[in-house]
Design a protein around this nucleic acid. Sequence first.
DNA 1: AAATGGCAGTGACTTAAGTCACACTTGGAG
DNA 2: CTCCAAGTGTGACTTAAGTCACTGCCATTT
Lengths: 233, 233
Amino acid sequence: MDKVKALKQTPLFGSLSEDTLVKLSEKTSEKFLKTGEMVFLEGEEAKGMYVIVSGTIRAMRIGADGREQVIHTERAGATFGEIPVFDGGLYPSTVVADEDSFLLFIDKKDMHQLCYEYPEIALAALKVLSKRLRYCASLIESLSLKEVSQRIASLLLEEARQRKPNENSIEFKLTLTNQQIAARVGTVREVVSRSFTRLQQDGLIKLQGRNVKLLNIEALASFEKFYIVSQNK
Amino acid sequence: MDKVKALKQTPLFGSLSEDTLVKLSEKTSEKFLKTGEMVFLEGEEAKGMYVIVSGTIRAMRIGADGREQVIHTERAGATFGEIPVFDGGLYPSTVVADEDSFLLFIDKKDMHQLCYEYPEIALAALKVLSKRLRYCASLIESLSLKEVSQRIASLLLEEARQRKPNENSIEFKLTLTNQQIAARVGTVREVVSRSFTRLQQDGLIKLQGRNVKLLNIEALASFEKFYIVSQNK
DNA sequence: AAATGGCAGTGACTTAAGTCACACTTGGAG
DNA sequence: CTCCAAGTGTGACTTAAGTCACTGCCATTT
């Protein structure tokens, strides 16, 4: 069965035996989503969590003016909606499919039982949440202490890292729209656009349409970390 | 023994029997800190995590210009530094004592062993991290989508909640300096000061020195959530 | 091959927030 | 008591970021 294979791929359930995975997979229910469809809304009652078999999702919050801030994104093999499973509360953010996606739903109670029966699952979940917490802490830092162009620099470096591991000049196609970048980085479309042109003027990147070339990764990384504004007069 | 009593109080180890706690307590080591002393630095190699027996700490990041952003604060009974225990990385932020504090240190390996032996500990840890993640998500939202005075409003409401549960007009003494508030809320001292006077002008609070009175909790809460700026002309 | 809708780029303007400098409280410590 | 350090308040100024309003560019779709 396909579901079993999918569960096997995840960091959460990868440690389980074939048999156990079969039993688990029988308890899951399936959910198909088209791009843009919502999985759940912030504040909704939560009955369980999701595993992404294929596709990608974003978890986000929406401000009073309608602006969107992405909290985290997840792709195939990852899970989301775990928080209410472990602390009993409501879903902490709204989740939307960023591509057509196939999800498995796992009930709260089943998950608890698994954690008691197989401590390695609890440990794996702890690892997943820890990584997420790291990411959130960095996002907090950059929202509070860094400028937009620095945040964009780090997004570009991260995108690059996910493609080719390590060269000193990397070129790739941006799959994100400026609007999506803005929502991740905590600004608006126009500012993203201007930041790109500024990074280009400063010789850190080269743009041609949606094609980005990081001209000097070293410099970009140090810009991301250390750039300080005019200071005093 | 005092250590055992302290461990018993924590959400993490509260479920353990007296005997187990004694055994655990023997594995911990003690650490005393004066106000302002550092527990560990962001990026430091991590050998384990801490339990706060008494005192308070703040976990924070420091920007290139020296500005500080608090990620979370913890008080007696809480734990911190768990992330590297579960994901094997370095400490994600710098932790400093906000008062004279007494901590217990628990080794990574001991913690792992406990999680295997007592799944309820792993579950408790999952709950702790889930709560922290909720807090971080809200901080991200407010840094990205809310104005400083709104963030201060929510800080005031939170402070109030931690004292008297629910009345409609609450008065209390702010223990935080404006500087500390700024570091939590993601601004600078001066802006906090001005925000306070503005909240006062708008009739939401009454200030007398460090004494704050929330005049209209309803209104303050709705200001915190929904306030929208001038919009268009 | 038009036509349409979604994106990107940019000028012009506004504004919240940050910086600097200085004066004013205040609550301990000697 | 009074002195002092630490903290607060505030005016004046700068600036990053946000808003509005267009223009122009593609990539589909019919």
